[in-house]
């Protein structure tokens, strides 16, 4: 009988996803993000691509995979906007890297942890966007209202929890 030995927490809880899920879920998130604000303008406050980025990063627990996933999702998101391509790509690359790195250290299956990391990552994403627009692109009239960003983080966290729960069913242990 073959036996497997686990040498670290990372190897113990590392998950992978079927290629169809890894491809279609980010694409679906971007598609929904583009479609939903048209009939429901208030849903533009959501950031489904960021939720998916965080989920895949913390589940795979691989910083390289998290970075690449975040970059791909962010770049595709940028391509649909009027912004220069790379603004969301850079922000989500950093988010993917940090999320994967945190996923190695802590138990991300816990509900409280999920709430905290989602809320925190949405604020970090806003801060990164502010830095990129204000410093890299030199948009002096770019403002961020932190009260609005806190509300956005809270709403997205509330939406992220059921999405995480749904996507948990697509995981497969390696």
């Amino acid at each position: 009988m073959a036996t497997r030995s686990f040498t670290s927490r990372r190897e113990l809880e590392q998950h992978s996803f079927p290629p169809a899920v890894a491809l279609l879920v980010p694409l679906g998130a971007i598609l929904l993000q583009a479609l939903l604000p048209r009939p429901f303008p208030r849903l533009a406050i959501l950031d489904l691509p960021l939720i998916v980025t965080v989920f895949f990063a913390v589940s795979r627990r691989n910083p390289v995979a998290g970075t690449l996933t975040g970059a791909a999702i962010g770049l595709l998101q940028d391509a649909l906007t009027a912004q220069p391509i790379g603004v969301n790509g850079m922000a989500k690359s950093v988010i993917g890297y940090i999320a994967a790195s945190i996923g190695i250290q802590i138990d991300v299956e816990n509900l409280t942890t999920r709430i905290l990391i989602n809320f925190g990552f949405f604020l970090i994403n806003s801060f990164l966007l502010f830095l990129i627009n204000r410093r890299l692109l030199g948009l002096t009239n770019f403002h961020i209202y932190w009260g609005h960003e806190l509300i956005r983080a809270a709403i997205n966290t509330a939406v992220a929890l059921p999405i995480f729960f749904l996507l948990d069913n697509t995981k497969r242990n390696e």
């Binding site: 910083p63 390289v64 970075t67 690449l68 970059a71 770049l75 220069p84 391509i85 790379g86 603004v87 790509g89 850079m90 690359s93 950093v94 890297y97 790195s101 990129i132 890299l136 692109l137 030199g138």
Partner: peptide
Amino acid sequence: NVLVLVAILLAQTIGLAVQV
């Protein structure tokens, strides 16, 4: 991991610089 992140960020920064 860090090198991959830096490489990706650098590539995107150059891309941004070209666009603007």
